[in-house]
Amino acid sequence: MIGLGFDKFLSRFVKHKAAVLCLFFVLAVIAGGIFAPWLAPNDPNKIELKLKLLGPGGQFPLGTDHLGRCILSRLLYGTRISLGSAFLVMSFSLTIGTAVGIFSAYRGGRIDNLLMRLCDIFLSFPSLVLVLVIIGVLGSGMVNVIIGMILVQWLWYVRIIRSLVLSIKERTFVSAAKVAGTSDMKIIFRHILPNVLPQLIVLSTLDLGSLILHFSGYSFLGFGVQPPTPEWGAMIEEGRRFIRSAPELMFYPGMLITLIVISFNLIGDALRDVLDESVT
């Protein structure tokens, strides 16, 4: 599909050692989230005030929080929501953005103009403000934050994808495909999409990190996940009050977010190198 076989892709990717390490880390975290019910040593929501703010060890490998809940279990369950929502936002906004971006660039003319001005208007606001407005209308809550983020995020992709498609649309092989009698739909799926796909993969990997960060940010602000649901951003927020007495409450989720974001960035960079090489 993208002009290089899987084995070749793998052999090139393996050369980026840091990225491979990061990939394993990300996969491990994802696996932790998926298998949380089996891996978690305790119920993440079980409050036992007698056991609050315990240090690591024994029944609680990473200790307990201010309500006596197991931190490790909460982190594991939190992965489901933090990563899951980021993937959800990414896949929806990327799909919508790609479809609209390709349509806009390929059609051109007045529709393209109209869509781009619309994008300009929305993109002139900081995305945080825009999401807050949407949450203000829909009310707070995890689902509404996700909807808000999708509504804001796809506009970015439209812009980027449109410019990628425009540059490929002008290449001679698109004209050649027209001469060969290929229909517009087929030109889009066979010629244009495969040529923008590598850039899209890189872009979305890099953006995943920032989406996780954003989502956790909204939870931290109290708009997203409502307590007692475990989520990394929300956990940081809850730990904030105990920053002096028990800094580890903020440290564990904060560290996890940082590592995940760095990992996605490194993987994205490596993918860019690998996929760029494939064309030359």
Binding site: M1, I2, G3, R171, T172, F173, S175, A176, A177, V179, R190, H191, P194, N195, V279
Partner: peptide
């Protein structure tokens, strides 16, 4: 049609 720029007129993938 056969184009001037043969490298550009075929899909590199």
């Amino acid at each position: 049609m056969v184009f001037q720029d043969c490298t550009g007129s075929v899909n590199p993938r």
